[in-house]
Every structure is written in C-alpha cells, then in structure tokens.
Design a protein around this nucleic acid. Structure first.
Ligand code: ZN
Ligand code: ZN
Lengths: 716, 716
DNA sequence: CAGGCATGCCTG
DNA sequence: CAGGCATGCCTG
C-alpha cells in the first residue's frame, strides 16, 4: 500500500522533475500514445525503430520517489528479455525523445563520497556530510558500484556484496544492461530529498514514507565500546512468554504490542555512558524491500486505534517503553525510536531496553508478511554510529507455534554443523503480493505501448524501470514481464536442480525461489551488485579503492504539447548528473501543464494499427450505464477553466480538493485537457471506470512527460 | 476498531454532557477512585452500601456515542450477576451521586412517535418528522418497548420481535433489570446528533460512523410498485464469475471490488419511472451489530489506496457503477449510495444496477468477519421509501470456495423441506473478537471499582452499560462480565441439549452459540425485546397499540472536584428525559474542567483496603525504567499552565495538538490536573505505560465525571 | 481455478 | 495454551 499522501507525491514529482532536467534535442514533433492510460505525448522523432514496452498495468505509472535514479542505459539492449522490437512497417509516425548521455568525469569517483555540485567546495567527510546533507545516492542497477551514504541511523553507505550471488541481478533487478557491462553506465542520479522531520504523529502524515530509502546496513558491528544486544532465549517470567528467541533461526518471535527486553551490552564501555543512546530502526530484511520504510499499517496507525489514544506517533512500528524515548524520522526518512542508554542497574551488566512492535508481521498495508529486522545502533549524543546490531523479528499472533514451525523447517533444511548465521535464513514461504488486490480484473493485463524510435523507447524503459524500482509493492503485484520471464526460468531450473548442494549456486537458488528471506547476517544487498568490498563506516577501511560511481549527464529533449490550440514552446536545460542539492521541497512554478487525453481510435495522429486496445464491452456485465461524454467533458471543463497562473508555465495536474458532500460521483474525474479533445463513446473499461484520476499514476506520468515536453520545447 | 476521530469523540462528550445534566443532590464530599484509571472523582455521599462494578478493562471508558441512552434502572438489581456488594466496613468515606428518577408522564406513549419537547407542537407524522429531524431514539434495555424512528433509507422504526427468542435478552443485552420488570423503567434518552452530511471523502472523516445507529429493517416489502431485486444465480458471462448467488444460503458471494449486477424489478411500475431511485445501504446482519455502521476498513479507506485515487468517497463500502450515483450519509448516519432508476433498456424487464463491495468481509477494522447485508430501498425523489429488499452478502477472496462451504454446511444442518428463508442462516462460525488485539496483556483483566452508595453505583452501572451498548466492538473484546456469565451458562446448557430439535428452543440455542448469524428474513431485532408486533411503515398497521416507551427524567447531582485548591462549585440542572433536540453540535463553554489524577496508595482519602490494584512490578519484565515523577509533573504542568478561559467554567480535557517532531515521548502525556497531585513511584503498569492519555477513555470518563461534579457543585 | 499454505483468532 | 477453523493469498 502506498502510504504517501497525494501532496507528497506531488512533491516527489517536483523533485524528480527538478533533477531530471537535461539538455535535450528536439527534432520533430508528433504524438505517441499510451493506449491504456490515454495519455498522448508529443515527442521528437529521432529513431527508426519501433519498440514495445510491455507493462502489466493499464497505465505507465510514474509517481516515482525521490532518491531513485533513472538508468538511461546505452547501448540499447536489443537482447533484453522484455524488448519486443516491432516491425518498422508500422504506420505510426511518432516522434522521439533524443537522449544524449555524457559521462561526467568531474564527479567524485569514490562511492563513499557524495559528489558535490560543480563549483561547490569539496564534500566534507562522510559522517559530517551526512549530518548536514540528508542526501543519499541510491543506485538501482545491480552492476553499478554502490554509493550509498551513511546515515547516523545504522543505515550506512557501505553495500553488501552480491559477489556470492552472481545471478541474482537477473532475478532481483530491473536493468536493460547486459550483466557483462560493468562500467561506463550512464545513470541519472537523483538526490534524496531532505526529510522534514515533521510531526510524524500527524494524522495521515506518512512523510517520506512509502518511497525508496537508502539500503540499510545489516551487518553487526561491535564498535569501540563492544556494543551488542542480546535477547534472552525465552521469557521465563510467565508461563505464556511474550517473546521467544530462536537460536535456530536466530530470530525473535513476539506478539503485537508486547514488551520485549533487549539487553544492551557494552563490552568496553566508555567512562561516560550518559552520552550514549540507542537507535532502533525497523527494516525489511528481504532484499526487495530493504529500501522500503517499515511503518504501521493503516489499521493500526489510525488515530482511533486504542494503541494511539495515548501515543502521538501512531505510525511507528517500534515503540520503546522508556520515558525519554524519542520518536524521530531520520534523515533517510526512516522512522526510529531513540532511547538514552540508562545507567547500569545494580544487578546485571547490561542495560535493558523494552521494545514493543505495534504491528503484526502480517498486517495488510503495513509489514504485510514481509520479514523484518530491527537495527539497533549505539550512538553518541551527536548521533554518530558507534556500533550496530541487527536482530530479525517476527511479530505474529502465535509466536510459540511459529517458532516451532520455523525451527522445524530450518532443521529440515539446513545441514547440521552449518551455522545458521552464515546461511540465508529462509524458513517460511513468503507471498509475492503486497498490495491488497483491489484492482479490478481489467487492470491486471499485459498492455503494449508502441514506441517508435530507440530514444523514446529507452526513455520510457528507464521510466518504467524507475517506477518498478521505486514501487516494490507494485512490482510484486505486477511483476515486470521481462524480469519475470528471466526469474521464472531461473526458478524452474534451480528448483529442479536443488539437491542439497550447499554452495553459492544453491544460495542463488534460494534467492530465486521468490521467497523473501532475510538477508540479515549475510553480506548481501537488495538490488545492487557491487565490485567493491563492503565498507562499513565503523571499520577502518574507509578508503575505497573500487571503481567509482559513474555519473553521467543524460540529456533529453521533449516537445511541448499543444495548449489551447497554441503551441506553447519553452525549454529548460537542467544538468542533474550527480549534482546534489539540498532538497527542501522547492516550489516550482511548473504547475499548469496541459495534458492531452484521448482514446485510441479517435486520435488520427496516432497509429492504431496493432495497438492492443481493451475490449470495451466484454469486461462489464450487461446493462452497464455508460457515462455520457458530456459528463466527462463538463467535469474536465470545470477544472480546466480555472485561472492559469502563468501562460508559459507548465501546469502540474493536482488532485482536486476533497470532494464536497454535495458533489456527485462524476465530479471525481478531474483532469485538465487541451485541444484536441477526442473522446469516443466506446471507452475502454479502464477509462470508463476509473477514468483518469487526479492522483493516479496516469496523471503523474502525464505530468512528468508533459513537464519534459514543455520545458524542452523552447529549444526547438 | 473505533473509527471516530478524537474531535468527534469530544463532540460526543459534549452532546452527552448536554443531555446528562440533571438536578442532583449533593450531600457530602469524598473521593471515589478507579484504581486502574487513576481517576479520582469527588461524589456526594448518599447511600449506605458499597458496590463493586467489575469491568474487564483497566479503565471505565466513557466515550459513549450520541444516540445512546443511559439506563439508570431502579430498583437496584442486587441479584444481578455482576453486582458484588462490598462489606460496609470499608474505611472508604466516599461521596456519591444521588440520582433521582422521575417518570415524565407528559411524554408521548407511542413508540412510533418521537416525543416532542415540552411546549412544542405535536410531532409530525413519522415519515416527515424523520426527514426533518435526524433524531433517533435508541433504547438498549431489551425488555423496553422499541421507539426507533423510521428513516428514509430503509431503516425504519419498526422493531423485529424477539418473541421467538425468549431468553435472548440474557445473552445479548446488558441490563441490570430483571426480565420481569417491563414497565416503569427509568431511562435517560439521549437524542441522536444531527448527522452532518459532510464530505465523507475527507481523510479520516468518519463522521457519525462508529457509534450506534438505528436498527435497520431487514424485511422485504414490495410496496405498491412491486419492487424487488434479484441477482442472477451465477454470472454466466465468464468462466470465473465475479459473483455467485446461492439459493441454498440465499446469499450473494462476491469478491472485493467486483461489479455485481442487481436486477431491479417493478412488478407494478408507475407511469413515471424517472422519479424513482434506489438506495443501497450496507448493514451488519447479525443482531449484535445491527446498529453499527458498515464502513470500509482503515486500510481500504486510506486515501492512498488505489481504489480511492479516483474516488472521493473512500469510506463507502458499496459503490455503484453509475454515473449519477450519489454517495450520501443518511440522517441516521449510515453511508449509502443512491442510484436513479434508469429507464428500461430494450431487452429485459428490469433495471440493472451494478454494485461493488469495496471491502472484504474479513477486513480488520471494517466489516471484520461480521456478516453483512445490503438493504435496497425504492424511493421517490422525496426519499420516501416505496419498497425494500434485503440481500445477504459475503465479500470474500474465494467466493466459489465459500459458497461451497456454506451450502454444504447449510445442507448438513437444515432438514429437507424447510425453507432456508424461514430459518436463521448460520453457515459458518463467527469469531467473537472485533478489535485487533492490540491491548497489552495488562489491559485484559478484571478490575474492581469500589463504589459506596447505591446511587453512584447505579449511575456508574448505567455508564458502563451505555459504554457497552455504544461499543459493540469493545463488548466483543471485553465482554461484560455479568452478561458473560449468564450467556456462557446458557450456551453450555443449550449446546448440550441441542439435539436437532427444530423449534424455538433450538433457535435460541443457535443464537447462544455465539455465532453472528444474519437475521435477514427473520423477524428479530438486535438488542430489544418488544412486546409490540413489528410495524413496518410500508404496511398499513401504522397505529401501534403497544405500551409506550417510558421516558423518565433522571436527576443527578455531583460534586465539583477541587481546582487549584479552591472548590469551584457550580451546578447545572438539565432535564433531558425524552426531550429531543436538533443536535447540531453545540459549542459548549465547558472546556476546562480540572481532573484529579492520583494513584491508589498515594491518596489518603481513598480507601485502599480491598481495592484490587495491579501488581506494579510483576507485569513488566525486569529492568523496566520507571518514568520519574518529574516527567509526569512537568508534562502536566506544561498543559495545565495554559490560560484558563473561564475560571468558573469547567474544562474538558482535550488531546494535545499533534506532537511536534521535536517533542519527546513524555510530551504525549498531557492532562490537566488540580491539587492535590499525588504521584507515587510505584505506579501501576497501566499508569506507567499508557498513562492517562489525552484521548483515552480514561480521560473521557474523567471529563464526564468531572463535568458532572463541577456543574452540580454550586448546589452545595 | 483448485489445492494448499499462512496466519489471525476462536474454542476448550 | 493447543487444536483447529477462517480466510487471504500463493502455486501450479
Ligand atoms: Zn498493523
Ligand atoms: Zn477493507
């Protein structure tokens, strides 16, 4: 479930657009249409080939999050699984986006350093820079070197190596790049937005949650103070223990909202313990969700939930039973609770910290059956990380049953003598779907986007990849077709040959099984294959000798769509390759971009030859009242008649204010249109039922595309 | 899950207080304490006896909803199951609330007529009055005559008879009244608030939802136009049907967000069909939840849920695929969709209406595995009901599986030849718990409230009953002990004797089984046993000859607690017996009532002799940092130092504004205190962990009690 | 779509 | 608390 609010999505888009701006060449104009989302974009023509982007959803969603990157790879991966070149004898005469890519040789080469904007002073040391700039460079192509920036929350920039899983990228990653290409990969690096550590207890305020975050470090590190955290194997106080710690699966099993004591041990404590604190961050431990924030489900984070009646941080999964517990949103956007390290009590040689997990691992819209872990980091009062401990956690209604199940599965699987810590834990099958299956049956189909020209095709592929990267949940529900075919074949092969061969190959096969095993204790990373060894800021190996992260300026030029019958041409050239900015969400004046909406057969300029259009009558039962065209038009007109702030300023479509009670349902369809408006009665089911929704992915995609077009049109 | 927002709760409290005001006699002052909630109330002393109110939760929650009533029964039910009279040798010298009860003989006697305020003109006819006054009198005691007011939504005032279930009241109801007492029951009738048909699509705006509503009419009525609604047995269009209609269970089985065609038949259609419309209201069909609104779960009603991206009514469970569908909140607070009756198409002789169910029947925090039905009412454009059809619905992920399961169970249970329509459907076991079990283990205990004096005891019992009535979910999770013991014994007996005796006795046994069977098609009512025959406004039997609903003015007098060391005495005398008001939420000046919070052993004026206090050290694991007293005090001081608007005006505690990110967790504990503030270190677990929360039930209870005390203190 | 698992929750 | 059911969802 996407927990972001619409306005946050818009901020994301703004941020994205701000960083996507690249010089682009426009050659000619025509229209390319997405038959499913009914979004028509006018793009320059540049290439001779017509490619097909296959996507399961009916739209090309594009509400990517900040912190992601577009991978505009070149050369074109004609051998990619999902690429379906169409014959050039198509009658489509579309235009194309010409994407020029340049490698920026001025960018810093060490992945441990964030690149500075051109002309700015050199980056400060990592730790301090992180404190000042909450920017994290994330990179999605697994074959690219890693460049995550450490945070003070136990989520650091060092990347766990995928070297032991050579084939994993085929399964986990969305890339058009052949695995052999390891260098000179042009990428668009988008900085992570500065996270407003706003009131996280605000109703519905999932600020910065739901998008992609940095990849957490899941390796333990005692640090100079000998920091470690233990959990007793079993609560012996009562007959019905509130938690269970399995030494077999090395996982904590507990129920929802039960206090679990964590013992904080300092083997080499400093003289002044009062300056120390412990930060607890829950993370998804499965690779595909490492970068997804762990928040409470909508059910449990509802302000009326009893657990929130006396607690202003309803969205924090982990709570600490400590009067000075601090609930913060880290610079990386993750929700964390920080507890000061209490002085040692009389008895034991450790400091206990009581934690509660406020959602079940099965909570729909929340953890959603994905394995989680908590990262406990020892910090000084400057927030610098002094040690780290990662503990797998399973919050379930029947810990005793589940620990039994898991341990039996683990014992049945693993060979004796092999330390569980060394192998990837995988004790229970995991589902693949994240979102509640609320989409109508019409949505889950294979749609085809015909694109003429390699440039636009690549651009759209990059957008598609970016969307998948930033939407792991969506990727779960609608797996990328290209990836799916690759991974499924791998899965089949591995499954057939899985014969207790405990080596790297089998480890891969376990990964390929589609299970969401935790990577805790294993030096792996979610979607990045790195050549460098993993570097931990806590370790002495700070100098990284690996090849640097290649930052490339991508240039794209798009064309403005018509607006009010007039071509409003304008351009914008923004270099974003590797440039980091303080991303306090900036107010953009680009709010009023027209959007052309049409259907397949009504737009003459769009080739409708082999476009896969939906059967418009078959999907619905009989006697469906068809919404009249007038309804559409009047609704659209209502909004489009709003005063345009700046004629030359593109407009980003925004969702309408919350519908008034008096408004009827047709009023919910709000979009801004330009000429030509072409609506046919034979609307596709998707169009008719959901239509183009204000906050929908279609709209976002349209905005981004249109934004491109507008900004670059003045170049022509 | 309580879906109300805190501010709505406050509104509820305001409304409640407004109606609870009754003349009260204050004799003396002392303090009665709730050892669990740490709320100390000063009450007048009036009675010699010390009673005990047992309640499972650690608090005496009091965020009752409007539309409920307090049943201040007299005489005292000493033989009630939960009543535990304490010996009078307790050292407690508490004060008491003196509750005077008078029967208002001027009130109308017909349950079909809403009583008018004294001096006002007679009530208009039922139908019209309902249109004007969205007030519904609800009554909780099952042995009382029914007085629900009809609404235009197919939810009418006629009550289904419980005559076939003579023992049901013992199981379903919370009453201290012996079943034999059928008359002269003093009751406090609270009018239902006027429902603001506000923007239901507003985030978190569950306006008026979550409380108790009127009891819907679940009987079919063709009306003059021969109205009925059919659903085809099975969708034959596709191989995987989106719905299934079982003729065995007479229930519709469908998946979430699938369009199901309902065929609206008019056997005797009028000349002008264009003035007709159909209203669809989902209701819980099991007796204990008949009066609970059916709304979407927090998960699915989240604005970021894909189903809400293009739809401004996220909380409506039922959607209609119709361009003119209107999503309204009826006068009774229920969410409904109204669809105009389209003209007949060429082919069939019926009008199809496509409906979608936007939550699974299992949705936590929503339907929550409770059986539902939809009530389809034919209306004219004045909203007058012209016909009614009730259809059971099960929204599930596997309709084919579940219909199979249900039909097998039905066939295995019922004897051949017996029409399913005539028997209570009960095909699958139903759980008893509603709320997600988020409460800590410390919460689910039996707590004891010692009360001295019959009056206060009765008052508190009434409050407890009212809370249970208005919180069916809570009643599910923490069943009323008195009711539980009665019902469980009944269940055991019935189960043992359940030997295929298909008569009334067995029907009762089915009810006693704790299952949530639908009452559709059966003339039953949820928690009311009525002597009158059921009256349907559609039927000719409009004149009701049954004994009238006895309205009684209850007078209560409470004492003000100390504030700032000074006794601010004031009183308020409000007659609320049977008086109906237009309840546009009124702004009360009673916002600043002090609240005395203390713990058991620290308050010398409270007798701690046999008070059941929680073990303060045993519940928590070892090494729990105890929140220091200073933290409490500073936090409390922070809020209590706010400017008091009116010295004489009681203050209602309000939740603090959403916590700022910089605030630490102790800041969440906000309460307004008066002297004496007595905090001991050995705080009970409840106090220490959750503490007194601003929006919690403890606070609400304290506010109400304090409000009483304040208003009546000037009498002294 | 059927079989079966995962997992919350009810029952005894 | 163990056994088992209810029910969403994954797999084939
Ligand atoms: Zn949850
Ligand atoms: Zn739901």
């Amino acid at each position: 479930m996407d927990t972001r609010r619409p306005d946050e999505l818009w901020t994301d888009i703004d941020l994205l657009l701000d960083d996507l701006q690249s010089p682009t060449e426009v050659t000619e104009r025509q229209q390319v249409m997405d038959p499913s989302s009914k979004i028509v974009a006018t793009v320059p023509e540049d290439g001779p080939d017509l490619y097909t982007i296959q996507a399961p959803p009916p739209t090309l969603p594009l509400d990517f999050m900040e912190g992601d990157q577009i991978n505009t790879t070149k050369p074109l991966p004609d051998n990619a699984t999902t690429v379906t070149p169409l014959p050039d004898n198509e009658t489509t005469s579309n235009h194309f986006i010409n994407i020029k890519e340049e490698r920026d040789e001025n960018l810093p080469t060490s992945p441990e350093q964030s690149p500075s904007p051109p002309g700015s002073e050199p980056s400060p040391p990592l730790q301090q820079q992180q404190q000042q700039q909450p920017l994290v460079r994330v990179q999605s192509a697994p074959h690219l070197p890693q460049s995550h920036v450490s945070s003070a929350m136990g989520v650091s920039s060092d990347t766990l190596s995928f070297s032991s899983f050579p084939n994993m990228q085929k399964v986990m990653m969305y890339t058009l790049q052949p695995p052999s290409v390891q260098t000179n990969i042009p990428t668009l690096i988008m900085p992570q937005p500065s996270v407003q550590p706003g009131p996280s207890g605000v109703s519905g305020g999932n600020s910065g949650m739901g998008g992609m975050l940095d990849v957490p470090t899941l390796t333990d590190s005692k640090g100079e103070y000998g920091f470690t955290v233990l959990v007793e194997e079993k609560e012996r106080t009562t007959k019905s223990p509130m938690w269970l710690m399995s030494l077999v699966t090395n996982k904590l099993y507990t129920n929802i909202n039960k206090a679990v004591p964590f013992e904080v041990h300092l083997g080499n404590p400093p003289a002044d313990r009062s300056q120390l604190q412990v930060r607890i961050v829950p993370v998804f431990s499965s690779p595909q969700f490492l970068r997804t924030n762990v928040t409470r489900c909508p059910n449990h984070s509802a302000p009326n939930d009893p657990t929130n009646h006396d607690f202003p941080y309803p969205e924090y999964v982990v709570r600490a039973d400590h009067p000075l517990a601090d609930y913060v949103q880290g610079a990386n956007g993750r929700l964390a609770v920080v507890v000061p390290l209490d002085p040692l009590q009389d008895g034991p040689d450790y400091t206990p910290i009581l934690l509660r997990f406020m959602c079940l691992g099965s909570c729909v819209g929340g953890i959603n059956r994905r394995p989680i872990a908590i990262i406990l980091t020892l910090e000084n009062n400057q927030g610098e990380c002094l040690g780290r401990k990662v503990i797998d956690v399973r919050v379930c209604a029947c810990p005793t049953r589940d620990i039994k199940t898991d341990e039996q599965a683990a014992k049945g699987t693993k060979r004796k003598g092999v330390n569980t810590q060394e192998t990837l834990p995988m004790y229970r099958k995991q589902p693949r779907l994240i979102e509640p299956k609320t989409d109508s049956e019409e949505d889950d189909q294979i749609f085809t986007i015909k694109v003429r020209g390699a440039a636009l095709y690549k651009f759209l592929l990059g957008v598609k990849n970016m969307y998948y990267e930033s939407h792991p949940d969506y990727a779960q529900q609608y797996p990328d077709i290209s990836q799916h075919s690759v991974s499924s074949s791998l899965i089949h092969k591995k499954k057939a040959t899985k014969k207790e061969v405990r080596n790297k190959q089998e480890t891969v096969s376990e990964l390929d099984n589609g299970l969401w095993e935790s990577v805790t204790g294993s030096p792996t990373n979610s979607d990045h294959q790195v050549d460098e060894p993993p570097t931990d800021p806590l370790e002495t190996n700070t100098n990284n000798t690996s090849p640097s992260n290649r930052i490339v300026q991508s240039q794209l030029k798009v064309l403005l769509v018509e607006r009010n019958g007039i071509n409003n041409l304008g351009e914008s050239d923004v270099t974003n390759g590797g440039e980091y900015k303080h991303l306090q969400p900036q107010t953009h004046e680009l709010h009023d971009l027209p959007l052309v909406i049409t259907t397949t057969s009504s737009n003459e300029s769009v080739t409708s030859g082999s476009v896969v259009s939906q059967p418009s009558t078959k999907v619905f039962p009989r006697h469906v009242p068809v919404m009249p065209v007038s309804t559409y038009q009047s609704t659209m007109r209502r909004v489009s008649s709003e005063p345009t702030r700046t004629k030359q300023t593109p407009r980003i479509l925004r969702p309408p204010p919350s519908a008034s009670p008096a408004s009827h349902s047709p009023g919910r369809m709000v979009c801004i249109r330009t000429n030509p408006i072409k609506i046919e009665r034979n609307l596709s089911p998707v169009m008719r039922e959901g239509s183009v929704s204000p906050g929908s992915k279609e709209m976002l995609a349209a905005n981004v595309l249109s934004e491109r077009f507008y900004q670059d049109s003045s170049f022509t």
